[in-house]
C-alpha cells in the first residue's frame, strides 16, 4: 500500500471584488481541481470569497528570516518613497 499523503496547497481568497487575494490557510488535495473544490468547501462556508487561488505549497519560495536585515532594512531609510516626506503648501489642493 502506498502510504503517501495528498500534497499540501496554499489557499488565497479574494473576499470581494476590488480587493487583493489574501492567504487564508492551507489544505491537502490530490490535484488542482480538487484543491480548488476543497478550498471552496473548507474556506468559503460563510460567503468569505468571490475568487480563489490555490498553489501547491512546494512551489512557494519564501524569503529567509536570516537574511531579513539585508532584504528589508535598506527600505527603512528611504523615507522619500512615502508621500508624507514632502511638504506641500496648504494652499495647494488635490495633491
Amino acid at each position: 500500500m502506498i502510504q503517501q499523503e495528498w500534497p499540501l496547497w496554499e489557499v488565497f481568497i479574494r473576499s470581494k471584488q476590488g480587493l487583493d487575494h489574501k492567504h487564508v490557510g492551507s489544505l491537502h488535495a490530490a490535484d488542482a481541481a480538487m484543491a480548488m473544490q476543497n478550498a471552496r468547501d473548507v474556506y468559503t462556508r460563510r460567503l468569505e470569497g468571490v475568487s480563489i487561488w490555490v498553489v501547491e505549497s512546494r512551489h512557494i519560495h519564501a524569503s529567509n528570516p536570516d537574511e531579513a536585515a539585508e532584504f528589508f532594512e535598506p527600505a527603512a531609510d528611504k523615507v522619500y518613497r512615502h508621500p508624507t516626506f514632502y511638504d506641500v503648501p496648504d494652499s495647494i489642493k488635490h495633491m
Binding site: 500500500m1 503517501q4 495528498w6 490530490a30 490535484d31
Partner: peptide, 15 residues
C-alpha cells in the same frame, strides 16, 4: 479511506 486517498493520487499521477 486509504484506498480512496490512493485512488485520487494514482489518478492525479496518470493525468
Amino acid at each position: 479511506g486509504a484506498w480512496v486517498r490512493e485512488a485520487a493520487l494514482a489518478h492525479a499521477a496518470k493525468r
